[in-house]
Design a protein around this nucleic acid. Structure first.
Lengths: 217, 217
DNA sequence: CGGAGTTTTGATCGAGCTCAACGTGGGTGG
DNA sequence: CCACCCACGTTGAGCTCGATCAAAACTCCG
């Protein structure tokens, strides 16, 4: 028990234990661009694993602004909340293919198989870690937020000419709690400083990772 | 498994299961005002339960600003991270008495007793829920943050003439990511609107909860 | 090509920060 | 018991960063 992932990441062994559980019970489902996968406050009957495409988890604040809590890329599990109801809504960013898993089946399995229980624990721990990082992010300046985002995305997908961002400027803005105009301006500034290159709007290449990393402090 | 606390709160049964575990193994330790309990990145060998006084979990950002992640009041458990090392530092706000629990002992117990494992799960789930709320908080205006804080504190301790806040303005500021000056000004404004009364600096009374609750939206 | 959604760019505005000065109250030693 | 003291809190003035508003430019498809 208590899988002790010092990095906060799900490690290989646990991931495969959960994967096995998922493969046993999952069915496949496709979502079109901007299609809702589930809404906040709905009973969390299912959770999901991204096969292809990209998904956003978000909530709409009282004043109508949208806060994106996370982007979910292929291979990642989302919607597996420790509560009975979803806290966030989820939508496909682009056309997306997912595996749909019945939550109860997996939790029943977890009661018998320790490895699965460990994987679930690790997943929540990971989620907590992510959220804490997001919290720290919002206490930084605009440039630092954008740079953190770029570095994070470059870790998760390889940013290159062939491999662009799956999300719009507005999505980035809502993730970083900035306006889309500010995203534009910061990116421009980073390009002028030749820390990045903007091949097209979606294709951003990190030119000087060292400089970028030292900006986030 | 998966204790399903829809409120995100640890429910009675689970709390007592963890309490029993704590009572079996805990020793008592006192900390003086502002004394460090543990530092960020230290191995998380122990976790704690507040008996009396108040504790803050915080981190210091790159630019020297301090972000308080949580205040821990009597009865609450803190330092029980899902990672091998503490993510935050913890200090006593005031003179505080705590129970110190060896983490391994409890996790070993959890491997055998399902109720204890459930309590641990619930604790992390609760922590996640808290952090998510904190995240949403930082996307609101200054007044809304302060009001949210007051309502939260009134839920946790009864704010009254006899029962003041345990923390300074600066602590509140670092929790809400505002300056202490802004805290002062907002409190003043709320008093002028007779939504609250400032008996002394630490003794704040909520006069019109309805108005306050409708401010946070 | 054309048209709608997205991105960029510019100009202005404002919430909250910073810096500085002043007030206050709780604790300590005489 | 009082006076002093020093950390804490309040108040004011000006500034800054990023939001907002407006409009032009680009891009992706039909």
């Amino acid at each position: 028990m208590l899988p002790e992932t010092s990095t906060g990441r799900i490690d290989k062994k646990e991931r495969s234990a959960l994967d096995v559980a998922i493969d046993k019970t999952a069915s496949r489902k496709r979502f079109k661009s901007n299609e809702e996968i589930y809404g906040a406050k709905e009973p969390a009957v299912y959770f999901y694993k991204v096969v292809s495409g990209c998904v956003r988890s978000y909530t709409v604040l009282g004043d109508g602004r949208r806060l994106i809590a996370a982007f979910h890329l292929p291979g990642e599990v989302f919607g597996l909340e420790p509560t009975e109801r979803h806290l966030f809504s989820a939508e496909a960013l682009s056309d997306a293919e997912t595996l749909v898993i019945n939550r109860n089946e997996v939790t029943r399995l977890a009661a018998r198989e320790n490895a699965v229980a460990g994987a679930l624990w690790a997943h929540v721990a990971n989620e907590l870690h992510r959220t804490q990082n997001h919290l720290l992010l919002l206490n930084k300046g605009a440039s630092e937020r954008v740079v953190s985002f770029l570095l994070e995305m470059d870790d998760r997908i390889q940013l290159s000419d062939e491999n662009g961002l799956p999300m719009t400027r507005q999505d980035i803005a809502d993730y970083l709690a900035l306006s889309s105009e500010t995203i534009s301006r910061v990116l421009k500034k980073l390009e002028s400083a030749s820390a990045i290159a903007l091949r097209t709007t979606r294709h951003i290449v990190l030119r000087d990772r060292a400089v970028l990393e030292q900006m986030v402090t």
